[in-house]
């Protein structure tokens, strides 16, 4: 059964820590189509905005609402971090973990784990300890672990930030397959090339506030704000 999460609506959403506003106020509405890229330079608030949407950053003002109940929405989401977090277990046990948490039987979870390990190219590493995998392999494992529960939406926080070209290409291929299978993806990056390659929709953020949103083609062909234009031109924007 497909749970309808979208539209995701942020109204005056903001988060602050020790009196300092990190992100917001953000007014934004995202529908449930394709791959949305949150773009902006380092420190612009991409990660915090993703966490705010996901519900792991404390909302100190405004609201974040889904088409369904927030708890139901959280249940149908996953989050992939910039630095892959792998459990101190084998690749297979990492993949079965979220399924076992949801009460899936060990056998069914193992079948799904083998399937996903093959899909992301980790089939031969199933019994290896996840900590000994390379950075790219760990990130593929983290993505497979996020996708294995068939979430409606996956947040990815700069998933290829510290990886080489080959690992980046492989991960982008996995994400595009997930998108084709109907998973909504919201990914943050400051890599313009990557955004151009995979984005259907762009949210441009700077200084904690959303400057511009819209279809990727329109954004890259004719950015509306001077900040977005400067960013796309490769100028230093702060």
């Amino acid at each position: 059964m497909v749970t309808e999460l979208f539209p995701l609506t942020l109204k005056g959403a903001e988060t602050s820590r020790r009196g300092k506003r990190l992100v917001g106020p953000v007014d934004l509405s995202l529908d449930g189509q394709g791959l949305c890229v949150v773009m902006g330079p380092n420190g612009s608030g991409k990660t915090t905005l993703l966490r705010l949407m996901h519900g792991t950053a404390r909302l100190t003002g405004g609201s974040v609402t889904w088409a369904c109940d927030t708890d139901v929405a959280r249940h149908h989401q996953a989050f992939v971090f910039q630095r892959p977090v792998v459990l101190r277990r084998t690749v297979e046990e990492n993949l079965t973990y979220p399924l076992r948490l949801r009460g899936t039987s060990r056998k069914v979870a193992q079948v799904a784990a083998r399937d996903w390990a093959e899909r992301v190219g980790l089939g031969p590493h199933l019994t290896r300890r996840a900590m000994v995998l390379s950075g790219g392999e760990q990130q593929k494992l983290a993505i497979a672990r996020a996708l294995i529960t068939e979430p409606a939406l996956v947040f990815l926080d700069e998933p290829t930030a510290s990886l080489d070209g080959r690992a980046m290409r492989e991960i982008e291929a996995i994400l595009l397959r997930a998108k084709a299978d109907g998973t909504r993806l919201i990914l943050s990056t400051h890599d313009m090339g990557q955004a151009r390659r995979i984005a259907d929709e762009v949210v441009f953020i700077l200084g904690g506030t959303v400057q511009e949103t819209g279809p990727a083609a329109a954004f890259f062909d004719g950015p509306k704000t001077p900040q977005a234009r400067a960013f796309l031109n490769g100028d230093i924007v702060e």
Binding site: H54, T56, A78, F79, F81, V85, P98
Partner: peptide, 10 residues
Amino acid sequence: EYHDLLISMN
């Protein structure tokens, strides 16, 4: 090490 992952997994 696990905090963010387990929180995100609810």
